[in-house]
Nucleic acid binder design. Structure first.
Length: 422
DNA sequence: CTTCCACAGGAAGGTCTGGCGG
DNA sequence: CCGCCAGACCTTCCTGTGGAAG
């Protein structure tokens, strides 16, 4: 008790103050990507197409299997979940036995776990559920058949991110399950953002999964605007956003690939940044900041997961930049220079140095990831090389690199005779 | 104009890991 | 369990090249 009693009451009502600053939001959840709005805008055709395939379920027949393809943020998951919800609702109204199973194959990625998940959908008693491991796969399969048939209804299984599923055995078995069922019917909806995915499938699975194919086109800037406006009305208090913010977010996301998730992220982070700086309004300035923040977060994440050798090369480039900042240098470095510094680092950390050829390839990789910019230039008589510089946020990346075990004992390093502290 | 630097970047082959069918 | 093969990761060796210097 006593430890919570502070001697000098520094600040009495910190949360009160922070709460009061919540002047922008009404319903924060509406800006999250998982939020399901009441109406899905600009996907009327897609909803209709999918519904017209699945509608036969309401007549007790087996719907065709569907394969849905579309880039990220084109509403694939939202549309399928929405149609599924409506299907269940109609099923209840008309007293038809319909099951709707949604599975994300990125999380449930093996045949066993897939079967386990689907089967458990038909088991209400917790104690009777299929365990995570232990049963032979075909026993789970048999149990599924038995339960589904007992249930006797039409089951629609959604396999989101179906390309993440390891092996196509699971798909093959599932696609054949109808042959072994007495009364019940099963159909599948596969969702993927990888169009090439089906090329690698067993042709039998391919033809059965792709009885119907649907392609979700990206949203254009205007459509994204409508989607954002819809969320803004729910999420934000009136007058807390400038008129040009939504068009800007939409335009930026449309430039990418018409990714609605991206547009929403941009808007949400803009709002959060505005809130944090206690601004009464979300303005274009915050969108720019949000865009920057998203990019930096991405780069930091990439840097963190880089292989050690790439980190070491990155560190070499960073050290040169830091050195240049002190001495007023250009901050750019050639492949050869970077390689020399890198070799020195390798000696210090007692790791084997790669060849320059390999390092050059890794540098192009870092360039493609957007961590550095490297362009080929010719210095005439003095050769042809790549000019490398950090693209941004060197300090953040430096901090990430410091976390790595390999650099722990590396506290200083000499660059051209000068000791550089890391 | 030619020369020539300091690499770029292609080709081919080696090594190692991990999955897969028998 | 073993052999096989694909693919990631590297090395070695190589030819090609933009443009300042001569």
């Amino acid at each position: 008790m006593s430890i919570f009693k502070s001697k000098n009451t520094v600040s009495s009502d910190i949360f009160g103050r922070l709460l009061k600053s919540d002047a922008l939001f009404i319903d924060r959840e509406a800006m999250r990507p998982t939020y399901m709005p009441g109406a899905l805008l600009h996907r009327g055709k897609e909803i209709n197409d999918l519904a017209s395939v699945l509608v036969v379920a309401l007549r007790g027949e087996t719907p065709s299997n569907v394969f849905i393809y579309g880039k990220t943020g084109t509403g694939k998951t939202a549309v399928t979940k929405f149609v599924g919800k409506e299907l269940l609702k109609k099923g209840k109204e008309t007293d038809k036995n319909i099951n709707f199973v949604y599975i994300n194959c990125e999380i449930v990625d093996t045949q066993y776990r897939l079967l386990q998940n689907i089967t458990n959908h038909f088991i209400n008693e917790w104690s009777e559920r299929i365990p995570f491991t232990g049963w032979p796969t075909d026993e789970v399969y048999a149990k599924l058949k038995q339960l589904v048939d007992k249930d006797g209804g039409v089951t629609v299984i959604i396999l989101d991110e179906v390309d993440k599923l390891k092996g196509d055995e699971a798909l093959y078995n599932l696609s054949r399950i109808n042959n072994y069922l007495e009364k019940a019917k099963i159909s599948m909806v596969g969702i993927s953002n990888d169009l090439k995915f089906t090329e690698f499938l067993d042709p039998r699975v391919k033809s059965s999964l792709g009885e119907e194919n649907m392609i979700f086109p990206p949203y254009d800037a205007g459509e994204l605007q409508d989607i954002l406006k819809q969320r803004v009305d729910i999420a934000l208090k009136p007058g807390s956003i400038d008129d040009d913010v939504v068009p800007l977010c939409s335009a930026l996301a449309a430039q990418e690939h018409g990714d609605a998730r991206r547009a929403l992220d941009l808007l949400r982070i803009s709002a959060e940044l505005a809130e944090r700086s206690e601004s009464p309004k979300i303005t274009k300035r915050f969108v720019r900041l949000a865009q920057n923040k998203i990019e930096i977060d991405r780069i930091i994440e990439v840097a963190r997961t880089l292989p050690t050798q790439s980190k070491q090369i990155l560190l070499a480039i960073l050290l040169q930049e830091k050195h240049d900042n002190k001495t007023g240098g250009t901050g750019v470095i050639t492949t050869g220079e970077a390689y020399e510094i890198y070799k020195g680092l390798c000696k210090k950390t007692r790791t084997d140095a790669l060849t320059q050829r390999r390092v050059a390839d890794l540098i192009s990789e870092l360039d493609m990831l957007g961590i550095i910019t490297a362009r080929v230039i010719s210095k005439g008589r003095y050769g042809r090389t790549r000019e490398i510089k950090m693209s941004s946020s060197s300090n953040d990346i430096m901090n990430i690199l410091k976390e790595d075990e390999v650099f722990k004992e590396l506290t200083n390093y000499k660059i051209r005779g000068q000791t550089r502290l890391i």
